[in-house]
Design a protein around this nucleic acid. Sequence first.
DNA 1: GAGCACTGC
Length: 692
Amino acid sequence: MSKYWKPGSERPRTVLVDDEEGGVLFVSTPASSSGFGYLSLERQRQRLPVYKYRTAILYLVENHATTIIVGETGSGKTTQIPQYLKEAGWAEGGRVIACTQPRRLAVQSVASRVAEEMGVKLGEEVGYTIRFEDQTKPNVTKIKFLTDGVLLREMMDDPLLIKYSVIMVDEAHERSLSTDMLLGLLKKVQRRRPQLRIIISSATIDAKSMATFFHIRRRNIGQATEDPAPSELPATLSVEGKGYNVEIHYVEEPVSDYLQAAVDTVMSIHDKEPPGDILVFLTGQDDIDAAVQLLTEDAQNNGLLVLPLYSGLSRADQDLIFSPTPKGKRKVVISTNIAETSLTLEGIVYVVDSGFSKQRFYNPIADIENLVVAPISKASARQRAGRAGRVRPGKCFRLYTEEYFVKEMPAEGIPEMQRSSLVSCVVQLKALGIDNILGFDWLASPSPEAMIRALEVLYSLGILDEDAKLTSPTGFQVAEIPLDPMISKMILSADTFGCSEEIITIAAVLSVQSIWVSVRGAQREFDEVKLRFAAAEGDHVTYLNVYKGFIHSGKSSQWCYKNYINYQAMKKVVDIREQLGRLLRRLGIVLKSCERDTQVLRKAILAGFFAHACCLEEFSPNGMYKTIKSSREVYIHPSSVLFRVNPKWVVYHSLVSTDKHYMRNVIAIDPSWLIEAAPHFYQLRKPNPAPY
DNA sequence: GAGCACTGC
């Protein structure tokens, strides 16, 4: 292996302390690394790297409006800082300390850990809020963990976030859509509420741009406040992590086939390295299944237990990953990016990093989201490597050269804000009274094309008016519904068509990944089972049949298993459906059923998705459609019940672009409904006119 | 004949 691999010289664990005012300096000590099993909770807390910075953090938060904390995983910042703040009195007088996370699971686990450390019952002094679940008590909860999406929603009722004294935005380096929106809005809130403290916690050293962003010049400090306002210069503090050292190895020459290189590397680790499980990062299901097959063939009875991991797997298959490795075996998990942040595997000692992941990119001109294999960033590469150092010192094998890493790999990924459609963002900002979207203070500004496209789409849906203001009531109601605006529009229209009962089921199904389980081996059987639910009208109506079956079965997981249906997804459908029902009631909409009339149902769908209408090309041998809007070539996705049925006129929910543009979730329509649904969009159209 | 990952009153 020494011939092939070149040890790297990356020094990830430098500690940097940088108070912009130059007054404070902290020097770190090397990370300690011992098991905590026998220590009391209090002693464990004191052993965390962040503990040394307790006084410093409290000092900075006291004196600065914004504090940026750079800390690696395992520093303890997420669980400790909210407690320090509470101990220092930031939760007194009915005020609440908030800590946001990008993911639900993180919210729950961090909250329960903190409650345990404080010796209180979860949901009282320490609580959490995620969608569908509010574990907080008014006037009792002092520390509240929540997803950043929930905090954004809270702003619709409480734009200045009055009840919070400190808001800590954790994992800000991930730069999710809602984190970026939240940070932009928090900056605005801070102008109006100088006493609000913001803590931004990030795992990467790119704190400078955050600091520059939050360096606000307050304009109107007219009214005298009782406390002196904190410095508007953000402070930056760095805390080291608790991970073990991970030795980085690079290939000497670039590899041409990362799949084969990954397989070879696994075999080589298995041959030459001491015991320890291996985690391999590839890009998608195809790659992963291929690698699993190669390794399983290669590895017959040689002691490798090879397991795939991606979100499309059923829960049972995902859980295999967590089962203990049998004696004398070495576990190899071949995973997508899911293992980079969302799932943590214990016992990994070796990581193989292909250097790629699938990433979503949005083309605002074509209004299409693409999924492409793209190189990862240095930040991701470090995160992946860190997965090898959770239990003991590990090794990371990067399938790219050190020169590439140093010179070519981008430091950070492109923020999601610059890779997505802005339709939802715009509605949320408008609802918060931000009228000038182009002039909004973005952390990373989206392209003007994307913003203009979003405004156009929303205007065509009747959600925004000519002045780009939310329409009343439609626009404001759409903003209340936590779904894609096109789906929200569809839901609201269902009221007129008398089919809201059915439409909210469809909306819920369209809002989850997929209700089918992934079955590669039993494809034929799967297709046959699917036919039991299939409706001639298309996928949306098929989903109604599945939902009915699920409810009829008493929401049985067995029933799901037998029918190749994802039980977790169906439970989520039920949750979303209930939420939508409550929401509509609040908007004064009474749920009505259209019984068997699928025509009104499809008209309601069209009210949201008229822009996605397509017509089958005449004499097309391979089922080619063209979009009415822009004559784009599209095909029905093979997972659709209308695949090979090819009705003349269809409307799709979304496009998946791989080698072709595939329409996912397709329904057959009558073209006359189009003019009815959107006269402004489809007027006087003779062959292939383009509205834009 | 095909499927990155999260998330939301």
